[in-house]
Design a protein around this nucleic acid. Structure first.
Lengths: 194, 194
DNA sequence: CGGAAGATACGTACCGGTCAGTAACATTGT
DNA sequence: ACAATGTTACTGACCGGTACGTATCTTCCG
């Protein structure tokens, strides 16, 4: 109650939540700041007191997205896994189901990259950092599986996952449904199980 | 010479070319009609005489893109292939190289889907039709390879390819470089060669 | 042939609306 | 008092789209 939390009152959070929902659903460029503040039940000056610009608000949205992403990836379906193979496959199974749900719009970070080609954009920097880290993590897990070519397997899994993101927002019951089987086959091709 | 061609003078083509370049490079929403006509060396009314709206111009851009896509896919690197396995792998090899070039911005059709979530949008209808046809074609080729589960293999290859599109515009020398090896392993997992 | 009528293709100048962002001031709760 | 928020009104730039005038070429008729 004293001075613990720093400049994170209530309006800023409402704006953040509203922006996350709208940016994900409609895209960043498609949503105006007026729509964001209206949905948040606040006014425009409140937005610009907490965020220096719309671009920075977009970056904040992606930082939230990044955080949620890692929770979903490290604990797919709320469970934790010690076997790296089962870990990755559990995420892909969970993602495939999610990709078939209504209103699925892929990965907010990948989408932001499409909307902002310039690497200098604040949103891009968040997205790029996430993708770099994700690639590293998948290669790490592939190595832990004992894959013959861990970097190739890690990249292959990443390509499959990005493919789910993309196709999930194209066709309702699309190729994403085959992802678990394809991923299993890909892993088994690089890991000779005992 | 008499009355064969209908309302396709010269300005329309310039506009089309200008729009294709700008839409692909910057994104559709990011580019204004003024910029398009300026680059084309014409004026705005000329645009609206040939295209009823910016949305329809975007759809025209994607129709061009679709046409070029099929040329690239059916004859990757300018060559033609009779073996379906070599056909798909040749496209993936060609694509991986292209994904590493400067200014690569992924698939214009997939990008349009990100920019326009609504399925009613003219651009979306072109993109969706292309993706449906591409999925069918890949499953067809997978069947021609004699795959044990042709639909799963076809979808798996599609996911890999969409992954190349996406990651190609994220990291310069990214996961797309591993795609040929991953695709080979995936195919071999479903096709027991004699 | 000559020359108006029409079609074709294009530009000038402008419209109303929306965009991100801001200034100045009132209100609230602690 | 003080800090966070709301209220109102505004800016300048840009957006997609259009009304209207004009130059050029074709056509067909006297």
């Amino acid at each position: 109650m004293s001075k613990g939390n720093e400049a994170v009152p209530k309006a800023a959070d409402r704006i953040r939540a509203s922006a996350c929902e709208l940016f994900y659903r409609e895209g960043i460029r498609a949503v105006g700041v007026d729509e964001i503040v209206q949905r948040a039940g606040v006014t425009k000056p409140s937005l610009y007191r907490s965020f220096p610009s719309k671009d920075e608000l977009a970056a904040a949205y992606l930082r939230d997205y990044d955080q949620n992403f890692w929770v979903s990836f490290e604990n797919p379906g709320g469970k934790s896994y010690s076997d790296p193979r089962e870990h990755v496959l559990a995420y892909i199974r969970w993602l495939s189901k999610r990709a078939a749900t209504d209103g699925y719009r892929g990965c907010g970070l990948s989408n932001a990259t499409v909307e902002y080609p310039g690497r200098e954009h604040p949103a891009r920097q968040v997205a790029d950092a996430n993708k770099r880290a994700f690639r590293k993590r998948l290669r790490e897990l592939a190595a832990a599986m004992g894959a013959s070519k861990p970097d190739v397997l890690g990249d292959g899994l990443l390509l499959l996952i990005e493919g789910i993101y993309t196709t999930g927002q194209q066709t309702p019951a699309g190729p994403a449904q085959s992802a678990p089987q394809a991923a299993t086959a890909l892993i088994d091709a690089f890991v000779r199980s005992a």
